[in-house]
Write a protein that binds this DNA or RNA. Structure first.
Lengths: 107, 107
DNA sequence: TTGACATATTAGAATATTCTAATGATACTT
DNA sequence: AAGTATCATTAGAATATTCTAATATGTCAA
């Protein structure tokens, strides 16, 4: 009768770790508003190209993000919409004043 | 217009890290059902006393758990109910079949 | 007050994560 | 084809996290 069965705790904690980093969380937050290319994410997060690329790669491998090549650029977006719920829950904890509904709309 | 403003990304990612570990997530999940003492959490998580104690301490310092001494035992419980929302969001991702409402009741 | 029990703390070794610097790959432009 | 721009990959140093083992603290019971 647990919320998350023992056998899935490992997987879930790995999922958490995949976004429990300043840069990766920042990326995820920015992508809540729609797809962005690496360049723009670089500016948005203030991280080096190489570093950002490694973080993006990690999130993609974890099934959180997906990417699409458009010409010279690669656009990243949120692959699993359920991760939006995680961000909303986080927001409820750390900035409750900016209220939003669970589907991500601002109120 | 971001869900989590830049200045709070660091804090939020620290909060995530505080539960992004098998043992700590397992503890949090077990405590969803109510307070438990260290001994029982030890059995529930299969961790050594010292190790568990260190994890509990970390979660307490992060404001996730609180504890209360009752005689020889120390009971831990969820200090910030908003963290329940995080677990629910996690569950929606990793075990959607076990559906539950946002307030934690099973359906 | 001594011993047993429950929990906390500390130090340091083991392990994992993160970042930087260098290089590689691919797609555009001219 | 040569140069430039965008992104990915790699190796390894720097840093942070986790675990174990030993010890400390506080509480209860006899």
């Amino acid at each position: 009768m647990q919320m998350i069965p023992e056998q899935k705790i490992r997987t879930a904690s790995e999922g958490l770790r995949a976004i429990a980093h300043e840069v990766r969380l920042s990326v995820l937050c920015h992508l809540m508003q729609g797809p962005m290319c690496v360049q723009d994410l670089m500016e948005a997060t203030g991280t080096s190209q190489s570093n950002l690329s490694q973080h993006l790669s990690k999130m993609r491998l974890m099934g959180i993000l997906e990417n699409e090549k458009r010409g010279q650029q690669v656009y990243y977006s949120i692959a699993n919409p359920a991760f939006r719920g995680l961000v909303s829950a986080l927001q409820a904890i750390y900035c409750p004043e900016i209220c939003s509904t669970s589907n991500g709309e601002l109120k």
